[in-house]
Structures are given as structure tokens and as C-alpha cells.
């Protein structure tokens, strides 16, 4: 499996991500989501004048943090027209994330409109020291 990839379900779509650390997992979640929305058409995106958005969420599990984190990235995209491309971590553990989201003004047209991040079948599993997760989006 790649570090991040997309997959279809009958009605919706998802991303599959992996990482050794929590940081890897969140970084790959951003990459996977951008791949899902923009496919490979990010070359014309202008990466000047970034704006940082703080994110601070304490949840009940890593799954809960991941859903809220991705919901934030989607809110910035569809409501503020900001594309998140990186994340600067302040603190991260299995149920907490404090970080800055690095965003740019969106030049591209998103390929799909995602309604929401779901918890459906979402479970972060660890095998041989690598964390894996599948996240399904409602579109």
C-alpha cells in the first residue's frame, strides 16, 4: 500500500492512509484528501501568500481526531476557498492534536464536493509498527 491512496465505495469515496507516527498519518491524510478532490491536477496551484489556521481538538480517540481534522480541512476548502497543503505540529497524541494548518488561496476548481467525513468503518489499526486507516466521505 502507498502512503496514501483513494478508493471507491458504491455511493461514495474514501482514502486509505498509513504512517509510522501520528504526524505521518495526519500529513498523509491531507495528501490523500487533496488527491481525492483534485486528482493529480495541482500543478497549476499557486503557493504564494500562505495563511495559517490553528487547529486544536481533544477527542475520544484517534479516529475522532482524524474526522474532526479532515472536517476542518474541508471547511477551509469549501467555505474559505483555502487549500491546506501542510501541517506544523505543536502537540499530537492518540486523542489530541494541536497544530497550524498551512493553507493557500485556491486557484483550482475542486473535482468533487464532499458533504462530510464519516465514521463508517473507520478504525485506525497498527500492524508491525505502522498505523493504517480508511476514511469514507459522503459525497
Amino acid at each position: 500500500m502507498k502512503e496514501y491512496e483513494t478508493f471507491p465505495t458504491t455511493a461514495d469515496v474514501g482514502i486509505r492512509i498509513k504512517g509510522i507516527t501520528y504526524k505521518d498519518l495526519f500529513k498523509n491524510a491531507i495528501k490523500g484528501l487533496n488527491l481525492l478532490i483534485f486528482e493529480n491536477e495541482t500543478s497549476s496551484q499557486n503557493y504564494n501568500s500562505p495563511i495559517i489556521y490553528p487547529f486544536d481538538f481533544k477527542g475520544d480517540s484517534l479516529e475522532n481526531v482524524l474526522v474532526n481534522f479532515l472536517s476542518e480541512v474541508l471547511f477551509l476548502l469549501y467555505s474559505k476557498n483555502r487549500m491546506t497543503i501542510d501541517i506544523n505540529f505543536e502537540e499530537v497524541n492518540e486523542n489530541y492534536l494541536k497544530a497550524d494548518l498551512v493553507t493557500f488561496n485556491l486557484d483550482l476548481k475542486p473535482g468533487i464536493e464532499i458533504k462530510s467525513v464519516t465514521y463508517h468503518n473507520l478504525k485506525v489499526v497498527e500492524k508491525k509498527g505502522i498505523k493504517y486507516a480508511e476514511i469514507i466521505f459522503d459525497i
Binding site: T6, F7, P8, T9, T10, A11, D12, V13, I139
Partner: peptide, 8 residues
């Protein structure tokens, strides 16, 4: 009701 994923 869908029978094919969007990707497919």
C-alpha cells in the same frame, strides 16, 4: 439507487 461506484 447506485450500482456502480463513481470511480467505476
Amino acid at each position: 439507487g447506485r450500482r456502480m461506484s463513481r470511480h467505476k
